[in-house]
């Protein structure tokens, strides 16, 4: 009776559930990718994000000017409108120049590099640390577990910006310090996500089966449970990268984050802020647009990933 398929109750919407029809067997990755690209907005988001990452990586090779090479900038070119040219008409400042005469486009490309770098690096470190702590806590259980989770809950009950503010007030400025703060702000999310997943996964049959096979618990955790949490971790960390980039920009804007020598997009915006009221809007505006596009495209990708990966999680 292999040709008779199981039928679900057709009441309400259950009929549209997957599995009513035999779906052609495709790998999960191909299926997920196909599903991802069904949304045009998400596809555009992914393309823009890819372009931005490439541009950020190649900044030193493609930007018209090295904005931190004092030799290449001329104070005479300061506060030029977008589209202006240098005195000798050799270069065009597509997005204008800042108060020092730096080409805004070049500054933005370098700033993008720093913003993206800080965001991704801090998220990855937080992801690793948070996952290890989360796994370790649920592995040990008992008091250590409940203590760690108390700390996690306590920290998460405070807004990220407040925690970061305290940390940076204590630590001072610097790229290492801001990464450290962003890691401390983020790790708790991953620890909690991992732990709640482990609690669910643990009860599932395959873990029972692995236990019956006599596999050591560590092996079960890292070899079996962790891979099953991966889709959710991917979704969380995508969204958190955007959050980290925005937070770093905000802190830098408040004068708490990056040092002036390593201007991220946030710091570029802050630098232009004081000239804005006098009408030199572009010094602040374009870095802001770059930041905005970066964050929106990451969020679009993250949103779609959540939709695509979540049904798999539920199964």
């Amino acid at each position: 009776m292999a040709d008779i398929n199981e039928v679900k109750q057709p009441d309400f919407n259950s009929v549209q559930g997957d599995g009513v029809l035999p779906v052609k067997e495709e790998s999960l990755l191909v299926q997920s990718l196909k599903e991802y690209f069904e949304s045009k907005t998400a596809a555009i988001g992914l393309i823009i994000l890819t372009v931005m990452i490439v541009v950020a990586l190649l900044a030193p090779y493609i930007s018209p000017q090295n904005p931190y090479d004092l030799m290449s900038i001329d104070i005479m070119d300061s506060k030029l409108e977008p589209g202006s040219k240098t005195m000798d008409e050799s270069t065009t400042f597509v997005l204008g120049t800042d108060s020092q005469g730096r080409d805004m486009l070049s500054s933005i490309l370098y700033g993008l590099r720093i913003s993206l770098g800080v965001g991704v690096l801090s998220t990855v470190i937080a992801l690793i640390i948070g996952s290890i702590i989360g796994l370790w806590a649920s592995f040990i259980g008992g008091r250590t577990d409940s203590f760690i989770m108390r700390v996690v809950d306590l920290q998460l009950s405070f807004p990220a910006i407040l925690v970061a503010l305290i940390l940076l007030a204590v630590l001072g400025k610097g790229i290492d310090k801001i990464i450290l703060s962003l890691v401390i702000v983020q790790w708790a999310y991953y620890a909690r996500a991992i732990r709640s997943n482990v609690l669910v996964e643990r009860r599932k049959e395959y873990v029972e089966a692995a236990k019956c096979l006599g596999l050591p618990q560590r092996r079960i955790m890292f070899g079996h449970v962790l891979p099953n949490c991966t889709p959710e971790l991917i979704v969380i960390s995508t969204v958190k990268v955007a959050g980290a980039i925005a937070l770093e920009a905000t802190l830098s804007f408040l004068g708490l984050g990056m040092p002036i020598t390593e201007p991220s997009l946030g710091l570029l915006i802050a630098n232009g802020y004081k000239y804005m009221q006098s009408g030199y809007y572009w010094i602040s505006f374009y870095p802001g647009v770059a930041l905005l596009i970066l964050i929106v495209s990451i969020n679009l990708v993250g949103d779609r990933l959540r939709d695509v990966l979540n049904p798999r999680l539920k199964k």
Binding site: T250, M276, G288
Partner: peptide, 21 residues
Amino acid sequence: ILGFSLPTFWVGLMFIILFSV
């Protein structure tokens, strides 16, 4: 989505440019 993505401080600046300046 836009409201989630826009950094608060930048929106504030844009408000000032648009509505005040």
